[in-house]
């Protein structure tokens, strides 16, 4: 068998660094969208009219019961077949965002419902209307309470983002594959890719711990 030679990786460092950059951009954008959309879905499911609740619940059920890769293929390849052409990067972000928005919505729903009823009563008796009560009192608390769970989702998002390499987005895995096509050394490059993700993961976990710590302090 071929021996392993990790020195080849150094020559491709610029390429891998670029891939790293795209992974970060992609994951961060999708993470933000997934949190915002998650809050939106949760509020619509809890407080929206029946016309809005049921479709969203169905959508959530659908997206939680099927693999991300399938959803990605549908959004990128499937939609283009009926004339909706979404560029790869857009499709990747949309798929990641929607997939995780749905899980976040589930978490936020539980979070909002678990805020003590007395909080709503206090806010309402001060004269806050329904919407303001949610905006200033309930949702901020729900977000704080669900931070650990949502944080885990964001870590999962980072790792799942590797999937978008399959539709040609130039992130870490795709960059590794380009390098492999020239050097025929899959082991070295995939291992390096894994290491890059591991480091990103550590950074993200540390970041999340800091945020959680800050939130705890203000309790």
């Amino acid at each position: 068998m071929q021996g392993l030679d990790f020195t080849v990786v150094f020559a491709y460092w610029p390429l891998l660094a670029q891939g790293l950059g795209w992974t970060v951009v992609l994951s961060t954008t999708s993470a933000i969208f997934s949190v915002l959309a998650g809050i939106g879905f949760a509020l619509l499911v809890l407080y929206g009219s029946a016309l809005v609740r049921y479709p969203i619940r169905l959508f959530m059920w659908l997206f939680m019961g099927t693999p991300l890769l399938l959803q990605l293929f549908l959004i990128y390849f499937g939609l283009s077949q009926i004339g909706i052409d979404i560029p790869a990067l857009g499709a990747g972000i949309i798929a990641l965002s929607l997939h995780f928005a749905v899980y976040n919505a589930d978490i936020f729903q539980a979070g909002i419902l678990s805020v003590d009823r007395g909080q709503t009563e206090a806010a309402r008796s001060l004269g806050f209307g329904r919407h303001r009560t949610l905006a200033y009192i309930i949702v901020p608390q729900a977000v704080r309470n669900t931070l650990p769970a949502v944080g885990s989702m964001m870590i999962a998002l980072l790792k799942e983002s590797a999937i978008v390499s399959m539709i040609g987005i130039a992130e870490i895995v795709h960059s590794a594959q380009l390098a492999i096509s020239e050097t025929y050394r899959p082991f070295e490059f995939y291992l390096t890719a894994a290491v890059l993700y591991y480091i990103l993961n550590l950074i993200l976990e540390a970041g999340l711990r800091r945020i959680e710590g800050k939130v705890e302090l203000s309790r």
């Binding site: 206090a122 608390q141 309790r219």
Partner: peptide, 22 residues
Amino acid sequence: RHINQVRQQMGMVFQHFNLFPH
């Protein structure tokens, strides 16, 4: 709108305080 206005003119103190923890 009416009830929010009216409630602003009344103050309520609860058994379990219901302060906003955040």
